[in-house]
Write a protein that binds this DNA or RNA. Structure first.
Lengths: 202, 202, 202, 202
DNA sequence: TATTAATCGAGACGGTACGTCATGTCTTTTA
DNA sequence: TAAAAGACATGACGTACCGTCTCGATTAATA
């Protein structure tokens, strides 16, 4: 009667845990390389070199370099481009759109978003993860913001567009301009709000 | 008796001219590979293999694989997504936007456009050439169409948006939806036109 | 009590060491290709293919394909064409010359020597390394053999030729015959010894 | 009834004959490239470029670049290293050996001979043609010279070596020294003659 | 306090694609 | 019809990354 004794399935863990310093070094190295040298220079080897980290350490924790960028994007845009869910006013909505314009035009993390949108065209895995971890949650928050602002009477939105299409109509042009290398001034954000959400009832 | 002066003694070239069959084989091979296997499989070696052409022949005529895609995009969208410059009516504008939605959703050349927009984020050269050879001329035609339609009283456009911003507001959301993997139904095109150009004054 | 001092704390390397199996596979593949298909088929790609090895592995360890051949030559001729330094007799010298004739005529490694002599005419680097790693050490051993044989009275060598010129006179004709596609019978080796070292005073 | 008139069967030639200027340009370009840049730079493309000649012109007249070198070697060494067949004296023989040493050490055509010997190791066709067009005829003349010199009592050659082996013994060491990058002083030629043809009976 | 197991830097490995070069054949135009 | 020009299919060059792997050394929790 072997193995009857209790020492059960799990033996939780021993050994060192994940090295936070290495994690940050990789994230920063990826960010820096993207901004300094462009996406072409963003190879796993280059990140490992720059971060002073072994390649294996990267492959152990990230399934692809897209996922590294996604980590930086999620962390950075939570900090620097929050959706103002708690203040569903017209000003908050307009302010968010302006912040998005600035994010795309100036913030390094904006470049990361563009790079990930690009990479998503080439790799379905990246597309899926970008949607799941970034686009969908953010869209959810944006939708909530807008719904509560409309409910509060801040806007009289155009009737023809549903909530999602409306948000695409507000944010899509900003992203499109950034993707095509055009400038993304804050006025454009304002003008879009005026045209689509009703004349500045602020 | 025109051209009486003697032909000016030029001796331009001898030797064989560019092989049109090879050019087309490359273009089609690139297109097919992109649609069938995705951008990841779109290597110069694979194009050459599929086209039955030597790599050197590709490098002789195209500076990068982006330029190959650009050639197919320019040729295909001249055929399948013409800007109706000669009929500046409300219907023509709405029809063009619907055609753009279909182009992005269904046409293989739509995939090429998305791939090039993506590649442009990674490579400044591709960005520049995409702008020069595709985006700028098309935008020029679109601008002309819209101007003449407004002049003819077909629309009463929103005041806050200039011509370029207006076109970004009309086409940007469609492209953005395609880039994020969302569907691009023709209704969205209609709704955008309604919202931004004034309620269907047709 | 030697080595009382503590081992000097060196930490040479971690990670995987050089793969001996890969090294031998490359050496044998090069050898085989040269013998079976001739020098023209001896490309780095073909060696890699035949050895089941990545090209990069070859470039990691050998600066050129000449160096690969040199490795096989050094190892093979240490085994199959040793200089009999320990028995400085007339018989040993004559036997060595006969062995050289056989080596050039029949041994695959003889073909390697001829190929390297040829390659050395085309590439100064190969010339230098062939001299340093093969010709010079071998010549040194030959010189020692001959000197001790003469000292022991085994020969009364021709006066006009110094040691090096004498060895060139003995071995040069054999190599030259091999290079020009002539046969290299052992008699020629004997006849050279007779003519240059004095009539078989053994 | 056509062609009844005398102009008989053969139609000798029409169109331009072989362009002698192009032939010489190719020969000189090959020679120059070999001396200036080494064998590695001696490609058909480079020869054509340097000679200002189309590649096809080279392929039309020479089966390989070895044949080009062979043409220059045959022409140059007929001029600069003639076998003194008409004066079968000891001095003539010794002079010829000294001239061979100088040819190998200093003459550009000597480099061509070494390059061809090398190329012959890699390519059987070159080997065959080198033998047929250069080595064999020259050896024939050398043999005749030596035979007549011996007949005239100029030498009492070593008995063990037949005529061919004797010539290999005289010339082989000189070529071998040149191939291994050693110097080829004229003394060596003299010493070989002394050792193999009997003590300077001049 | 030893054992044990996971992490880490390093880097070798089999691959694939890169962009360049030379090969030898061919086609077009000029002389 | 020879020659210059040069496009073409082929295939090797040497380099860069890919993602996997193995090596020792290090570092925690477990026993």
């Amino acid at each position: 009667m072997p193995d009857a004794s209790p020492p059960p399935a799990r033996r939780p863990r021993s050994g060192p845990r994940r090295d936070e310093a290495a994690r940050l070094a990789v994230l920063h190295a990826a960010d820096d390389l993207l901004v300094e040298l462009g996406f072409g220079a963003l190879t796993v080897e280059a990140i490992a070199r720059r971060a002073g980290v072994a390649k294996q350490t990267i492959y152990r924790w990230w399934p692809s370099k897209g996922e590294i960028l996604l980590d930086t994007l999620v962390e950075d845009s939570a900090k620097r481009l929050p959706v103002p869910v708690d203040t569903p006013t017209a000003d908050a909505v307009r302010g968010y759109l302006r912040a998005l314009a600035r994010f795309l035009a100036d913030d390094p993390a904006g470049k990361v978003l563009l790079a990930l949108l690009a990479e998503a065209q080439h790799d379905p895995g990246t597309a899926e993860r970008l949607r799941t971890r970034y686009l969908a949650p953010r869209r959810e928050a944006e939708r909530a913001l807008l719904a509560r602002a409309i409910e509060a009477g801040a806007f009289a939105p155009a009737p023809a567009l549903g909530p999602d299409a409306l948000l695409d109509a507000l944010t899509g042009p900003l992203v499109y301009r950034a993707l095509t290398g055009a400038s993304v001034p804050e006025d454009v954000a304002d003008a879009l709000a005026d045209a689509l959400l009703g004349p500045a009832a602020r």
